[in-house]
C-alpha cells in the first residue's frame, strides 16, 4: 500500500465541451498541507469533488492511501474525511445525534466523540436541531465529524468560510496537530485565508486558469 494519503494521476474532467481539469497530477504526503489556489471557476471544487467521490472524473486515477477510489470506494472512504463547502444537514436531528451518526460511520472511539464535541464547541446547542444552527455553527459541527476515527486524508472546501476569528484559530491549531500526527490535508482556500495557510505551512497548488464556471454553478470552484 502506498504511503501517500492522496495520489492523483492524470486526472481529467470535462463538463460537456468545457475542460475543467486536464491530466492533473497531485500528491499529498503524510503530514503535508496542500492548498488549492486559483481564480473562481478554475476547478478547485471539481478537483475536491473528484477526490472525495462526488464527481466522477473522465480519466485518471485517484488513490487514497493507495486504495483506488473507484475500484474500492468503501475502503477508500474509510481513510478520508470531507468538509463540504456548503453544509447539507438532515432536518429533524440534533447536533449530538448527527455526531453519533458520524461516530458510528467512522467507527470512532468515545475519546473521538469527546474530541469532536470539544472541537465543535457547540455546548448546549448540540441538543438543538442542527437545522436551526447558523452557518458557522453548522460548519463547526462538520469539523466535529472530521475528528471521528482515524483518517489519513482530510479534504476541506473553504474550511474557514463563515467561521469567526476564534474559531479559525482553534481550527488552525487542530489541523496543525492533525498534520503533525501524519494526516495529509488538501484544502481549497482564498486569499482571505492567507494567514491560516501560512500558519499551517501549506504548499500552494495552482489549479487551472479558466474563469468559466462548472455547470454546478459553483462560483468558487
Amino acid at each position: 500500500m502506498s504511503a501517500l494519503p492522496l495520489d492523483v494521476r492524470g486526472l481529467s474532467k470535462f463538463y460537456g465541451q468545457h475542460r475543467v481539469l486536464e491530466e492533473l497530477q497531485l500528491q499529498v504526503q503524510a503530514g503535508e498541507v496542500v492548498a488549492l489556489r486559483g481564480p473562481n471557476g478554475s476547478g478547485k471544487s471539481t478537483l475536491l469533488g473528484c477526490c472525495s467521490g462526488g464527481v466522477i472524473p473522465d480519466a485518471g486515477e485517484l488513490l487514497i492511501t493507495g486504495v483506488d477510489l473507484r475500484r474500492q470506494p468503501l475502503e477508500a472512504r474509510r481513510h478520508m474525511r470531507v468538509l463540504p463547502q456548503q453544509s447539507e444537514l438532515p432536518p429533524g436531528l440534533t447536533g449530538r445525534e448527527l455526531l453519533a451518526f458520524w461516530a458510528e460511520v467512522f467507527a470512532a472511539t468515545p475519546a473521538d466523540r469527546t474530541e469532536a464535541e470539544a472541537l465543535g464547541e457547540l455546548g448546549e446547542a448540540l441538543d438543538r436541531l442542527a437545522s436551526t444552527y447558523s452557518v458557522g455553527m453548522q460548519r463547526r459541527l462538520h469539523f466535529g465529524a472530521m475528528a471521528m476515527g482515524r483518517a489519513a486524508l482530510f479534504m476541506l472546501d473553504e474550511p474557514f468560510a463563515g467561521v469567526d476569528g476564534a474559531g479559525r484559530e482553534r481550527l488552525c491549531k487542530w489541523l496543525q496537530a492533525q498534520a503533525q500526527a501524519g494526516v495529509g490535508i488538501l484544502l481549497a482556500a482564498h486569499d482571505a485565508d492567507a494567514n491560516e495557510l501560512r500558519a499551517l505551512g501549506a504548499r500552494e497548488y495552482r489549479v487551472g486558469s479558466d474563469t468559466a464556471a462548472a455547470p454546478d454553478g459553483d462560483a468558487d470552484g
Binding site: 472525495s52 467521490g53 462526488g54 468503501l74 474509510r78
Partner: peptide, 14 residues
C-alpha cells in the same frame, strides 16, 4: 435523495 449525494463521501456500504 439529497442524503445520497451528501453522504457519498462517507464509508457507508451501498
Amino acid at each position: 435523495a439529497p442524503e445520497r449525494k451528501a453522504w457519498l463521501s462517507l464509508p457507508i456500504a451501498p
